[in-house]
Amino acid sequence: MITLLLSSHAQRIWGERIAVAVPPGTLSFLTAEEALAAEGPSAADIAFMTREVTGKSSPSHPTPELRGFDAVVEKSPNLKWLQIHPAGAERPIYRQLRARGVKVTTASGATAVTVAHSTLGAVIAINRRFPLLADAQRRHAWEPRLAERSPRDLAGQCAVIVGMGPIGRNIASLLGMLGMRTIGVRRTAEPVEPCERVVAYEQLHEVLPQADWLILCCPASPVTRGIANAAAFAAMPEGAHLINVARGEIAVEQDVIAVLQSGKLAGAYLDVFEREPLDAASPLWDLPNVLVSPHTASHSLGQNEAIFGIFLDNLARFRAGQALRNDVDNLG
Rank of each mutant, 00 (worst) to 15 (best):
75 K>P: 07
137 Q>C: 11
68 G>E: 05
98 R>H: 06
166 P>E: 13
124 I>H: 07
121 G>T: 08
113 V>G: 04
191 P>S: 10
66 L>C: 10
113 V>F: 12
135 D>I: 08
145 R>P: 06
127 N>F: 02
161 I>T: 02
125 A>P: 02
78 N>C: 11
192 V>K: 11
98 R>N: 03
183 I>M: 05
184 G>Y: 02
94 Y>N: 04
91 R>I: 11
89 A>S: 15
140 H>S: 14
176 G>N: 07
122 A>G: 04
80 K>T: 12
169 R>T: 15
103 K>A: 15
146 L>G: 09
151 P>Y: 08
154 L>F: 02
127 N>M: 05
94 Y>A: 01
183 I>F: 03
147 A>W: 14
126 I>M: 06
62 P>W: 11
176 G>T: 06
91 R>L: 15
132 L>R: 08
117 H>R: 13
83 Q>W: 01
134 A>L: 15
152 R>M: 10
82 L>M: 13
126 I>Y: 03
139 R>I: 06
140 H>V: 10
71 A>F: 10
136 A>I: 03
146 L>Q: 13
185 V>R: 00
132 L>G: 07
165 G>C: 10
152 R>H: 13
142 W>T: 05
66 L>K: 09
182 T>S: 13
111 T>W: 07
177 M>F: 10
163 G>I: 03
89 A>D: 03
87 A>F: 05
144 P>Q: 06
135 D>L: 13
143 E>F: 09
132 L>M: 13
88 G>N: 12
172 A>N: 04
75 K>F: 12
105 T>E: 03
182 T>I: 09
182 T>L: 05
169 R>W: 06
155 A>P: 02
73 V>G: 01
159 A>Y: 00
92 P>G: 08
154 L>V: 04
190 E>I: 12
170 N>R: 04
189 A>C: 11
101 G>P: 01
128 R>A: 12
184 G>N: 03
170 N>D: 14
87 A>M: 08
140 H>T: 10
187 R>M: 11
122 A>L: 03
84 I>C: 02
192 V>M: 13
70 D>S: 15
97 L>E: 04
187 R>D: 08
86 P>T: 10
119 T>N: 07
117 H>F: 09
171 I>C: 05
165 G>E: 09
76 S>T: 07
99 A>F: 07
81 W>M: 02
87 A>Y: 03
74 E>D: 15
112 A>F: 01
